[in-house]
Simulated assay, not measured.
Amino acid sequence: MIGPFINGAALLAGSVAGAMIGPKLNANIRTRMPMVFGCASMGLGVAMIVKVKLLAPVMLALVVGSLLGEIIKLDNIIQNCAAKARIVIEKLTRPSGDMDQEEFLDKFVALLVLFCMSGTGIYGSMTEGMTGDATLLIVKSILDFFTAPIFASTMGFTVGILVFPQFLVQSLLFLGASLILPLTTPDMLADFSSCGGLIMLATGFRICGIKQFPVANMIPALILVMPLSYLWATYLG
């Protein structure tokens, strides 16, 4: 297992570098590059959405999963954890720029999905677990290494704590891949990718400040989409 370690190291190194050079970074870079990364997230999302095989279960998973997220208030849970982490880290380091609390929490939730729940990271972890090929996670590491400094330049070292949920998610998927993938079909994986693409699209809108989609509350859809895809194909397909 090398992919999760490489990705975690890239995210952490990028976050530390961004937090340290933040004040020296050109203001245009700090304000405009996040929009570029948001656009990239939307483009990746669209590329993943078009892989859909069974549209109905994907939509059902997105709606039901988002409803579950709203019921348990997953977005609020993540925001509360982020707020506490910010307070602790800023006591040990410099403050996170001029960003107010609401803007900080909005961006933190979007980054959580971008770094930890993206289709590239999830599918890459599963692929390495089954085949030993870490190529997808290495590619994601390169992207994260350049993305993290831009956000850390305004949000501070707090971005670096995302390495923990990222490593946890990728490690669990790597270890469970031998149990998960034999139970899946190509169509189920395609629908999983499509569902992840919808969330990535919403994440891009949120990062760009176009629309504040509740992306964290949409995460349970990723758990539901493959079982629903299988059931739909088996009994209604």
Rank of each mutant, 00 (worst) to 15 (best):
I2T: 15
I6Y: 11
L12E: 10
L12M: 12
L12W: 09
L12T: 13
A17S: 11
G18I: 04
N26P: 06
I29C: 08
I29R: 03
T31F: 08
P34W: 04
F37G: 11
G38E: 00
A40G: 07
M42P: 03
G45K: 04
V46F: 12
P57R: 01
V58M: 03
V58I: 05
M59F: 13
V64F: 07
S66D: 03
L67F: 13
I72N: 09
L74A: 15
D75G: 11
N76D: 14
N76F: 05
Q79A: 15
A83V: 03
A85P: 05
R86P: 08
V88E: 10
E90K: 06
K91N: 13
L92N: 12
T93A: 10
R94D: 11
R94Y: 08
R94T: 13
V109C: 09
V109I: 08
L111S: 12
V113G: 08
C116I: 04
T127I: 06
M130W: 02
M130R: 06
L137Q: 11
V139H: 04
S141E: 07
S141I: 04
F146L: 10
T147A: 15
F151D: 03
M155W: 06
I161Y: 04
Q166E: 08
L168Y: 13
Q170D: 10
L173S: 09
G176M: 10
S178I: 12
L179E: 15
P186F: 01
D187Q: 06
D191C: 10
D191L: 03
S193P: 00
S193I: 02
C195N: 09
G197A: 07
I199L: 07
M200Q: 12
L201P: 06
G204V: 01
G204Y: 00
V215N: 08
N217E: 06
I219A: 12
L231M: 13
T234G: 05
G237Q: 03
